[in-house]
Amino acid sequence: MEITGTAQHAAWQSRSLPPVEQLRPGLWSLPVPIPHNPLRYVTVHVFALDGGGLGLLDTGWESDAGWTALTDGLAAIGGSVQDVRGVLVSHLHFDHLGLAARVRAASGAWVAMHPADATAVAALSRTAAADAVAAEVRFLIGLGAPPEEARADVGGAENLAGFLRMAVPDRLLEDGDVAAFPSWSLRAVHTPGHTPGHLCFAEERTGLFFSGDHVLPRISPNVSSTHRGEADPLRSYLGSLAGVRDLAVTEVLPAHEWRFRGLADRVDALTAHHEARLAELLAAIGAHPGSTPWDLAAHLTWSRPWEQYERRMRIFAVTETDAHVRLLAGRGLVTSSGGAVPTWTIRPR
């Protein structure tokens, strides 16, 4: 794999934001910070459109600092948020969709997503924050969390309120649709797994591949079970990886970290990572039969000691563990006790 986003990579190493960069005629990358998150920023891609105006791919985390970064970045390339005609959203997460409502209010731009994520955002917009908290707590208890720890990790309704006010899209993009960005040929590639409606975009004239969170150069994106999500999200993710592996791509432009070449090599590395993780989890289930996903997460290898995991980091780890358990079950390797809080053991052969 070859790093092509050298300024992005250097900024990552120095723990700073990368610069606004012009990548091609009429195409720029613009970093928007993510508060209190090890990913540090999301890359918004900005397209100059025939006939005037700009198009955005993703918008950044909704915060005053994020809004300032987005508007200052647009000013740096000679534009403004009022020039935005349309917003493509790779997926529903807050660091990608968060600022879309402000952009739309300021510019009148349309907002487009895949129907699966659009449906989820619409449902969230109709949900009271207290109800969202209660649903997530119930889901974690169903994965084996002690009720008091589930409530502590999810936190109060104020922690989710912003997520329930995200922009409901007014346009839908299915797999294979070409986005309405004049002078560009951005074909939507449905890549479920990270979210049910995750979209990548293949720019057919240049060979550029905007991979969102689907393929990142350094880490594997979180693939988790959710109370409203897919039954087997990791199976979907691995299938989506295989689906993009052999695309004719000149450069990969992800939403985090840095640009690179070598899509097939990176897909192979991500696939191998998950197969190794599945093997580690299978061994943990064998060593600790009758465990819940909450229990099993503590027996896996993480980037820091398990005792340091709490709140949203622990939720992500446990729900990611559950996604791997579901795939093992789908492969017929483990079996569930059933009941309100299922436990898992190796399936007898």
Rank of each mutant, 00 (worst) to 15 (best):
E2L: 14
E2Q: 15
E2P: 02
T4A: 03
T6V: 14
A7F: 08
Q8T: 07
A10K: 10
L17V: 04
P18T: 07
P18H: 11
V20S: 01
Q22T: 12
R24D: 15
P25Y: 10
L30T: 01
P33D: 05
V42D: 02
T43R: 09
A48C: 04
L49N: 08
G52I: 10
W61V: 08
E62D: 15
S63M: 08
W67Q: 02
D72F: 00
G73H: 01
G86P: 01
L92I: 04
F94E: 10
F94G: 01
A101Q: 09
R104V: 02
M113N: 01
H114R: 04
D117H: 04
V121E: 01
L124C: 10
D131W: 07
V137R: 02
F139M: 04
F139L: 06
P147E: 15
E149Q: 15
G155C: 11
L160F: 13
A161V: 12
V168L: 06
P169D: 09
D170L: 05
D170S: 10
E174V: 10
D175R: 13
V189N: 02
G193M: 08
G193H: 04
G193I: 09
P196A: 14
H198T: 14
H198D: 13
D213R: 04
I219E: 13
V223E: 05
V223S: 05
P233D: 11
S236L: 12
S236W: 06
R245V: 07
R245D: 10
L247E: 09
P254A: 03
L263Q: 04
A269H: 07
A272M: 04
H274W: 14
R277N: 09
L278M: 13
L282C: 02
A283N: 03
P289V: 04
D295G: 08
L300D: 05
W302G: 04
S303L: 11
Q308M: 11
Q308V: 04
R312L: 09
I315K: 02
A317L: 13
D322H: 15
H324K: 11
R326Q: 15
A329L: 14
S337Q: 11
S337H: 09
R349P: 12
